[in-house]
Computed example of a mutant assay.
Amino acid sequence: MKKAIRMRVFSDKHEEYKKRHDELWPEMRKLLKSYGCTKYSIWLDEGTHYLFGYLEFEDEELFAKTADTVINRKWWDYMADIMDTNPDHSPVSVDLTEVFELAD
């Protein structure tokens, strides 16, 4: 399965957002992989401060369970000071609809 999402980082936190992901905690990387995530990339539109995330995972139901893990909650808390978040510190995230794919 694949999924694309939109989030938003604060205008003065672009570098910090990148730094935190460059230094992604090993336990967070392990968590994502253990819940079936095979690809995850994030791009930044510096003009609008929007983040575009692209994920590929084996099972959507399994991957959704990452939200209930201690390490994921800690990551959300860690990121809450630099991006738009919900009251539980999860990122404000909008699912995007695929409208085109060029594939083999």
Rank of each mutant, 00 (worst) to 15 (best):
S11D: 13
E27Y: 00
L31V: 03
K33A: 14
P26G: 08
L102R: 05
E101Y: 04
A64F: 06
E16Q: 11
H21M: 10
D22W: 06
S41G: 05
T66P: 02
M79P: 07
W25H: 02
Y78T: 08
D22K: 13
L31E: 04
K65C: 04
L62C: 10
F57H: 13
T85A: 11
D84T: 06
S34E: 15
H21Y: 12
K2L: 09
P87A: 07
D68T: 08
H89I: 05
E98G: 04
D12A: 13
L44R: 08
E56V: 13
F57K: 05
E15M: 05
H14N: 08
V9H: 05
V99E: 00
L51D: 10
E23K: 09
Y78E: 15
E61W: 01
E15R: 13
V99A: 06
K30L: 09
L62P: 02
S34G: 08
W75V: 08
R20A: 02
M1Y: 11
G47Q: 12
A80V: 02
Y50T: 01
I42A: 03
S90N: 09
S93R: 07
T85R: 00
D12S: 14
T85L: 03
R73K: 15
A80S: 15
R6E: 15
I71C: 04
P26L: 11
L31H: 04
M28A: 06
P26R: 02
D88K: 03
V94W: 12
A67G: 15
V99N: 05
K2F: 14
M1W: 08
A64C: 01
E16F: 00
G36Y: 09
L31R: 06
E98H: 06
F100A: 12
K3V: 12
L102A: 13
H49E: 09
V92L: 12
D22S: 13
M83S: 00
A80K: 11
W75Y: 08
D104K: 11
Y17Q: 04
W25V: 00
E16N: 04
E61Q: 14
I82H: 03
E58W: 02
Y50G: 00
W25E: 10
L51F: 10
R8G: 04
L32F: 15
T69C: 09
A4Q: 08
K65I: 05
E46F: 05
K30I: 06
R29N: 10
L24P: 00
A64T: 09
S90W: 10
A64M: 12
L96W: 09
V94F: 13
P91Q: 10
L55A: 13
I82L: 14
E27C: 01
V92A: 03
H89Q: 06
Y50R: 05
R20C: 03
D104H: 06
E56F: 07
Y17C: 06
S41Q: 11
A103Y: 06
S34V: 01
F57I: 06
C37M: 14
K2D: 09
D88N: 13
K30N: 10
P87N: 09
M79W: 02
E27A: 10
L44H: 07
T97E: 15
Y50I: 03
V92F: 04
Y78G: 00
